[in-house]
Computed example of a mutant assay.
Amino acid sequence: MKVLVVSDSHGWSEMLTELKDRYEGEVNALIHCGDSELDADDPAIQGYVVVRGNCDTEDEFPYDIVEGVEGRRMFITHGHRYNVKMSLMKLSYKAQEYGADFVFFGHTHMLGTEKIDGTIFLNPGSITMPRGSHEKTYSLVEADDGQVNIRFFDDKHQELTELNCTFSL
């Protein structure tokens, strides 16, 4: 499984188009964790699995999506409805309820990843307005039979190797 995860683009449709052009056909899914601030029919967001963030007005985007890719179960949400700025506890409970292998979320504009009770949680940061660092970021997640590699990239597509991490499955 290989997926691209981006969040909090806040209207920057050119970057979403650029990511799609760069990775479509190379990844199993393009995932946007909310606050695109785009309409559902905007060409830039077409091809992405998209959830609704707190700054989105598009009713067509659901708040949560559970998606299966190559036998892995992904729970995708923006995070604002689970108070992710305070704790991952509510999000973790929902992930357990869904039987998720991965949780992809945004909202905080701060990248991070951790494994909680066997589930991998990933916030790719913000591709437009990062907090906690200066890099505008997105992630590539690659999982095989034994491990998960999470790689972070900036808006110039330079890999931020010091932020990358690996988890066993």
Results as ranks from 00 to 15, higher is better:
160 L>G: 02
65 I>E: 15
24 E>R: 11
12 W>A: 02
123 N>D: 13
144 D>E: 07
72 R>N: 10
104 F>L: 15
152 F>L: 12
126 S>V: 04
125 G>T: 08
73 R>W: 07
89 M>N: 13
10 H>K: 00
47 G>F: 01
107 H>F: 09
63 Y>T: 14
2 K>V: 05
78 H>I: 08
86 M>Y: 14
52 R>V: 02
8 D>S: 01
70 E>K: 11
109 H>Q: 10
154 D>K: 07
115 K>C: 08
59 D>K: 11
42 D>L: 07
88 L>D: 08
13 S>K: 07
81 R>S: 15
14 E>D: 11
30 L>H: 10
165 C>S: 09
168 S>K: 14
154 D>P: 05
122 L>A: 06
153 F>M: 03
169 L>V: 12
18 E>C: 08
28 N>V: 01
21 D>M: 12
136 K>V: 02
50 V>I: 14
42 D>E: 12
152 F>Q: 04
83 N>R: 13
108 T>Y: 11
72 R>E: 10
165 C>W: 04
58 E>N: 03
164 N>A: 00
67 E>F: 14
139 S>F: 03
43 P>Q: 09
125 G>N: 04
50 V>Q: 11
86 M>D: 15
137 T>H: 01
136 K>T: 02
11 G>Q: 00
169 L>N: 10
80 H>S: 05
36 S>Q: 01
164 N>M: 04
121 F>H: 02
20 K>F: 09
162 E>N: 05
145 D>R: 13
167 F>A: 00
53 G>Y: 00
6 V>P: 05
61 F>K: 06
125 G>A: 00
155 D>R: 06
110 M>T: 14
54 N>K: 04
159 E>Y: 03
8 D>E: 06
12 W>T: 03
97 E>V: 13
17 T>H: 02
54 N>S: 03
87 S>T: 15
86 M>K: 15
39 D>N: 12
167 F>D: 01
23 Y>D: 02
115 K>R: 09
111 L>H: 11
141 V>R: 03
101 D>N: 13
159 E>L: 00
140 L>W: 01
126 S>I: 01
157 H>G: 05
40 A>Y: 12
101 D>G: 07
92 S>T: 15
164 N>Q: 01
49 V>G: 11
49 V>Q: 13
5 V>P: 03
13 S>L: 00
128 T>E: 03
138 Y>S: 06
8 D>K: 00
142 E>I: 04
46 Q>Y: 10
8 D>P: 02
6 V>C: 06
59 D>Y: 08
110 M>L: 13
15 M>H: 04
61 F>A: 05
133 S>F: 09
65 I>W: 07
152 F>K: 06
93 Y>H: 15
70 E>L: 08
167 F>I: 01
158 Q>P: 01
86 M>C: 12
25 G>P: 00
162 E>C: 03
101 D>S: 08
24 E>Q: 10
110 M>E: 15
133 S>H: 11
125 G>M: 04
126 S>M: 04
30 L>F: 11
100 A>E: 09
95 A>G: 11
81 R>Y: 12
159 E>V: 02
106 G>C: 04
93 Y>Q: 14
